[in-house]
């Protein structure tokens, strides 16, 4: 069967578009490093309190139903993609974070919480750029620790 010449031209144009445009769409993360920020919060059931530095997190923290929240450490680090960055967490713990993908304005992180050398949890979470999620539960000084893990990719 004979293909009309106009269609052959259109096919060639589409092929060129495919060759040059597709790699742009396939980029999985930007060249710049990602800014990781870990807030370590001590939640207890003592008298009602909310650290003034946690005002922005108030509504999120209310989900876990404790009465008192104090920010006991905050650390911010620049991390390259596909690279582990270690944060020190009170109680001999550490948090290893690896940003590995940036797609649709969402950052994907692999996160491991360790107690000494022993892993407590491994998780993979994807969230909007400059957003956060909470990781909580480990006992600490009569309460529990809650980690607010956030990342800004651009």
């Amino acid at each position: 069967m004979r293909i009309p010449s106009s269609l052959r031209r259109a096919s060639k144009l589409f092929s060129l578009w495919l060759i040059f445009a597709a790699p742009l769409g396939a980029a999985e993360h930007p060249a710049v490093p990602v800014q990781l920020k870990i807030g370590t919060i001590l939640a207890t059931n003592q008298a009602e309190c909310l650290d003034s530095q946690l005002a922005k997190l108030k509504q999120q923290l209310e989900v876990v139903k404790y009465r008192c929240y104090r920010l006991i450490r905050e650390e911010s680090k620049k991390s390259s993609w596909d690279t582990n960055t270690v944060f020190e967490i009170p109680g001999g713990r550490s948090l290893v974070v690896m940003p590995y993908e940036f797609r649709n304005a969402r950052v994907a992180l692999k996160v491991r919480l360790l107690e000494g050398e022993k892993p407590i949890v491994d998780t993979t979470v994807r969230f909007p750029n400059k957003g956060n999620f909470l990781l909580g539960g480990p006992a600490h000084e009569g309460g529990v620790l809650i980690l607010s893990i956030s990342a800004a990719a651009q």
Partner: peptide
Amino acid sequence: FVPSNQASVESIDGHGFNV
């Protein structure tokens, strides 16, 4: 592929912990 505006957890492995 439209993104959600909430975090999504793709995997969790609690080593000896209920999660």
